[in-house]
Write a protein that binds this DNA or RNA. Structure first.
Length: 65
DNA sequence: ATAATTTG
DNA sequence: CAAATTAT
């Protein structure tokens, strides 16, 4: 069973949009981890200025396939 | 270097 | 097709 990403999608994060820190919810989130190693949860944010920003939302505890 | 994913 | 994202 993969990691549940919905809690990450519902929470807001401070992202740097054009030098301004805005609290946004990620459009999408996924696990970024090499095989057999720990990794991070990446969130994809869309700023009002049209820029796209990726930020780490958290880290994966242990390798889960 | 490696992983997934989207945008420029 | 390359950049960017972060921790191992």
């Amino acid at each position: 069973m993969p990691i549940d990403l919905t809690p990450y999608l519902e929470r807001e994060y401070e992202v740097d949009c054009d030098g301004q820190i805005l609290k946004l919810k990620p459009v999408k989130a996924w696990v970024l981890a090499p095989k057999g190693r720990k990794g991070v949860i990446i969130g994809l944010f869309k700023c009002p200025n049209g820029k796209t920003v990726r930020k780490a939302l958290g880290k994966t505890e242990q390798p889960v396939e």
